[in-house]
């Protein structure tokens, strides 16, 4: 049972890590906490549903959905955030809230307020067993996808020119621009990556929830925000660490709290977050250039 709960924790933590990373990439470059990140997930979810309805095979539908998330993120930057470039952190934050609310209403009125069932292929609800414990296919996919995405991102940031430029931009954007690298490209890439991560996270999220609804982005972006803050805002390794920490704490509490205390789970988790921040105000792994919003 303990092994089982560890797998549960890693699987949930992996999804949180992907989400927090999506927020952190954008924050590290432009100093924006994009609260519309969750709506990118919702959009990917609907794209998956639409692709499946149009009869695309499952892998192709996933590909379409993730690309939709990435493109939507770039479009979001172009339409909503580029005109605000250079604005104060507060203005950016409010803009992202506005985009988020707007998209939620569009989804509700344009598609349906009712969650739409997404029929996942039956092999995804399967499970395989080792001796007396079983691992679900869903959680296993979550773990593998999260791990691969983290490795791929790491390689991109370490091994490519754009990646290096992004890491440099996170430390000192002005110097990067003096080196002749266009700011727009760096920022667009940051949004593209964050959209890709949102799309991937959405697939894992939808696979576990079997439905898409207009408000589904709210919880994940909140968790991602908490994870990113705990990890150290703007720090990519921090976001990953924060995501896993949050996932592990949540599963651990759910598994061990007696029934009478269980309703206070979220309160306990958030108290833990405050405790971490009291000890390490800059987060677990602080960003090189510390920003605060």
């Amino acid at each position: 049972m303990i092994a089982q709960q560890i797998i549960n924790a890693v699987s949930l933590g992996g999804v949180y890590a992907l989400l927090a990373l999506g927020l952190a990439i954008v924050f590290s470059i432009v100093g924006l906490i994009n609260f519309a990140h969750g709506e990118l997930m919702t959009l990917s979810g609907y794209a998956l549903l639409a692709a499946l309805v149009f009869g695309l095979p499952f892998p192709a539908a996933v590909l379409v959905a993730v690309s939709c998330g990435a493109l939507a993120a770039v479009a979001m930057e172009r339409v909503a955030f580029r005109p605000m470039r250079g604005a104060s952190v507060t203005s950016l934050l409010l803009t992202s809230f506005a985009v988020s609310s707007l998209l939620k209403v569009v989804f509700q009125n344009g598609i349906s307020a009712r969650p739409q069932a997404v029929a996942m292929p039956s092999w995804m609800t399967g499970a395989f067993s080792f001796g007396d414990f079983t691992i679900g296919v869903g959680p296993s996919i979550s773990i593998v996808v999260s791990a691969l995405a983290l490795i791929a991102l790491e390689l991109f940031l370490r091994r490519t020119v754009t990646g290096t430029a992004m890491r440099a931009a996170a430390e000192d954007f002005n110097v990067v621009r003096l080196m002749g690298i266009p700011a727009s490209r760096i920022i667009a890439t940051a949004f593209l990556l964050s959209g890709l991560l949102a799309g991937l996270a959405a697939m894992l999220w939808v696979a576990q929830r079997a439905s898409v609804d207009p408000l589904m982005g709210f919880t994940p972006v909140l968790k991602a925000f908490i994870a990113a803050v705990v990890g150290g805002l703007g720090s990519l390794p921090g976001a990953v660490a924060g995501g896993f920490l949050l996932g592990i704490i949540e599963v651990l509490l759910q598994a061990t709290l007696p029934a009478a205390v269980a309703p206070y789970r979220d309160a306990i988790v958030l108290s833990g977050v405050i405790a971490v921040l009291l000890v390490r105000p800059q987060g677990l792994i602080p960003a090189v250039r510390v920003q605060r919003s």
């Binding site: 549960n8 699987s11 679900g136 919880t219 949540e250």
Partner: peptide
């Protein structure tokens, strides 16, 4: 709105 039921299911 909780994303994950795995702990409860375990």
């Amino acid at each position: 709105g909780q994303p994950d039921f795995s702990a409860e299911i375990t």
